[in-house]
Design a protein around this nucleic acid. Structure first.
Lengths: 294, 294
DNA sequence: AATGTTTTGTATAAGTTCTGTACAGTTTTA
DNA sequence: TAAAACTGTACAGAACTTATACAAAACATT
């Protein structure tokens, strides 16, 4: 992720172009940068701004947030994917400590407060990777007798936070929604829900519809609901005949389909053989992929 | 609660936006805040009001109550209080229709909106009995191929609504919390969560801690957490040797314990034989019972 | 029924903050 | 050389703030 950030982007655009495609005047773009530091494009040796594709997406997000009614000065907090620079001073251990302390006190509301506080500062994937997953792991290896309760409360708080973050975000409803589900393996849907939240914040109309009873049921729903695509998110190791089931699903689906989740990463080659598209691991790339679908 | 109040929420809106979406003029919003303190938005360092989504929902609720004929000055009680006036004209079929339509459209946010709208007008037990349970039943008997997804979205919306309603309610923290769990039977925890919300709105510090792996684990947590009591909420038919497990739990528990849920109603006599207290079926009586515990 | 009091939405005023844009002067690009 | 971008300052109008004031509606009392 941060490795990507340092690489020169394939395409870079002058300010005029950004203004053109986003509808924000150049002078305003500069003001935003100066006053709120929302977008920090690279520069030519002589100082001219060079906006990357990601920068343009950020501007789009800002515009969307403004349309939603949030004032420019307050956009920063609501914008996911900012706050990469502050990583030098890592507060993560402190946050983890706060989160676990809340759980040990069986205080779900306090745990939620921690998630909110941290979630306002860091992008979702960081929240997942640096706070939530470590906390879950720590609970898993803990010797505390009540860890089942702590884990349960944490999951509860996470779901609530994700929902609160997801609900109320205005998404692009002109496009057909993409349904996201799971049906091959058991387990929680943490990562799927986090990705859903990320996608919705990026303006995509992604909808988690719960775990499907069978691949055919999922295909059926894709058919009848008029969805624009289907995403199968599997993390745990699925049933033995998953390949067959996946083929079945693929043939029955009337719309584009892709697999995602940890499972898909473990079986890339096999999935390639089956000619089932795999969602990019990187969130930005994955979103781009979904955007250009159909 | 007050600790939560000054934490940054993910999204914050200026007063103009609140006015626009609720139809209440900014000047009136300020008057309400000054005169009745119903909504206390955060402030920027310079003093501008910052409304959270929850605040906006509160305003919506207030507007709805005013439309119902309740004067602003008395809204405060009705906001968290249990509505008593029974409706002469029942809108429930209409509400059910709206809810199901939202689900068929796979629109979880719209479903949530329906719950909020109705929940602002009626007490929770009515919401459960007249809207949620009938809707679940209807889905269960529906022939629609995607009913699993509809049910899943409904459960999702319900949980979110309950959580949102539960979070931020000030409870009596001087008393020791009562833990509520489930461990004998499988199934969803819908009714337990609804009761939790009711109890919290009544000022009781009841905390749902998820389903326990075993009765002893629950007893253990009651011990270590310093809880003031334990509530075992079971709806589905439990394992065969539930009586023995319950006895075990009762003996291991260091604090008062009671059983609740549909299961407890089906086995009143047996539970009496075991000398295990059963929570009153009526919500008001049940709350009274918990209040005088210990 | 008539009268007084409280409630409640809106209006006004005077001052502050926010935010998009304009302008001036310089440098870079094509 | 003309067009476009850069920086920094400036400014106007919109939006917010508090505080006081006022009229209509609702409620209470004689």
């Amino acid at each position: 992720m941060s490795a990507l950030a340092h690489l020169p982007d394939t395409k870079q655009f002058p300010i005029r172009h950004v203004a053109q495609v986003t509808g924000v005047l150049p002078v305003t773009l500069r003001a935003w940068e100066r006053r709120y530091g929302l977008i920090k494009p690279e520069r030519t040796p002589k100082g001219h701004r060079l906006y990357s594709e990601a920068d343009i997406q950020t501007v789009h997000q800002i515009v969307r947030l403004i349309d939603q009614g949030i004032s420019v000065g307050r956009v920063r907090q609501s914008l996911s994917g900012i706050g990469k620079e502050e990583d030098t001073v890592s507060d993560w251990p402190e946050f983890r400590e706060q989160l676990l302390r809340s759980l040990y006190g069986l205080n779900a509301m306090q745990a939620l407060a921690v998630l909110r506080r941290v979630g306002a500062l860091y992008p979702l994937h960081a929240l997942l990777g640096e706070l939530i997953r470590p906390a879950l792991l720590q609970l898993q290896h803990s010797e505390a007798s009540g860890r089942w309760a702590f884990r349960s409360m944490l999951m509860q708080a996470i779901h609530l936070y994700m929902d609160q973050r997801t609900v109320g975000v205005e998404v692009n409803t002109r496009q057909q929604p993409i349904l996201i589900s799971r049906c091959l393996a058991a387990g929680d849907d943490l990562q799927a829900r986090v990705f859903e939240a990320q996608a919705r914040e990026a303006g995509l109309d992604l909808r988690w519809i719960g775990s499907a009873p069978s691949p055919l049921a999922f295909a059926d729903l894709l058919q009848t609901s008029g969805a624009g695509g289907g995403l199968l998110w599997e993390d745990a190791e699925p049933v033995d005949d998953w390949a067959a089931q996946l083929q079945q699903l693929k043939h029955a689906s009337p719309v584009p389909l892709a697999v995602a989740g940890d499972f898909s990463l473990r079986h890339v080659t096999r999935l390639q053989e089956l000619a089932v598209p795999v969602l990019a691991q990187d969130a930005t790339a994955a979103l781009q992929m979904l955007r250009t679908w159909k």
